[in-house]
């Protein structure tokens, strides 16, 4: 953990060497998520509700997913950009160092410009948390935090799968964008709006709904099942198969090289 802090410090120093670029990229991140927000705002003011959810409720959902995604992108960037780590030989370097591979991949890349997106999420929270009319008990606050934590876990798991696939091929992996970028874009709305089939897919195949739709039901008093509040923790279990796939990938790399 101490070593992780050291890595973080050195990466922060590196990115601060290019201050203008850093600030502009962060602004760009903010603006693009602001556009997404305006899209929601326009739609919700025109239709008032979707699938029974109000603007404020959708905003809570949007901000939680956005925050989870931007934190995952910031701290698990190494997996997200793993194809370059392989192609520029950085992974060879990682393997000749006496530390765990996963730790090194995590620690070697962090993308602090995602603060732009994070800021947008915070702004939306600032408005939606009081405006949603939710009575914020301890349980509700815990649910919201669990949603974000679970989201970080699921996005991180998807990045790890993407990285593991890079060991086999780098072609055609943009399909994964449906689950990562798509998860962010379409996760703006509670996943039930896409119909039962899609909801099932995002519950059993990839667990987006576990940190998004179900806890939101609890949060907005549509359900009082404590289980829904704790489902984001189950979503973290998604990391286990992801790590297994990663292990298989590393073994494959060792036997083929770059």
């Amino acid at each position: 953990m101490r070593l992780y802090g050291k890595y973080m410090l050195i990466l922060l120093k590196c990115q601060m060497q290019y201050k203008t670029s850093f600030i502009l990229t962060a602004i760009g991140q903010f603006l693009s998520s602001f556009s997404a927000f305006l899209g929601i705002y326009f739609m919700m003011t025109r239709f008032n509700a979707v699938n029974g959810f109000t603007l404020e409720e959708v905003m809570l959902c949007f901000a939680a997913v956005l925050m989870a995604f931007s934190l995952a992108e910031c701290f698990f960037r190494g997996f997200d950009t793993f194809s370059t780590i392989i192609s520029n030989g950085e992974f060879d370097r990682i393997l000749v160092r006496p530390r765990n591979e996963i730790f090194q991949v995590l620690a070697s890349k962090m993308e602090f410009t995602r603060i732009g997106r994070l800021f947008q999420a915070v702004l939306v929270f600032c408005y939606a948390i009081p405006a949603s009319g939710i009575h914020w008990t301890f349980d509700k606050i815990a649910t919201l935090i669990l949603m974000i934590v679970g989201g970080i876990g699921v996005f991180c798991g998807l990045f790890i799968i993407y990285a593991a696939l890079c060991f086999f091929t780098t072609e055609g992996l943009e399909v994964m964008n449906i689950l990562t970028d798509g998860g962010r874009e379409f996760g703006k709305y509670p996943l039930s709006v896409y119909g039962k089939g899609i909801l099932k897919f995002f519950t059993y195949a990839v667990p987006h709904a576990l940190f998004q739709y179900y806890p939101l039901l609890y949060l907005t008093d549509r359900s009082d099942s404590k289980l829904y509040m704790l489902l984001p923790l189950l979503a973290l279990g998604f990391l286990i198969p992801c790590l297994i796939i990663w292990k298989i990938g590393v073994r494959h790399y060792r036997s083929t090289g770059s």
Partner: peptide, 20 residues
């Protein structure tokens, strides 16, 4: 290929290697 961190003084890279 380089193993040094590109944008920081070499001494900083050495310090990180010490911990690694």
């Amino acid at each position: 290929r380089s193993q040094l961190w590109w944008d920081v003084p070499v001494a900083d890279s050495f310090l990180l290697l010490r911990d690694i």
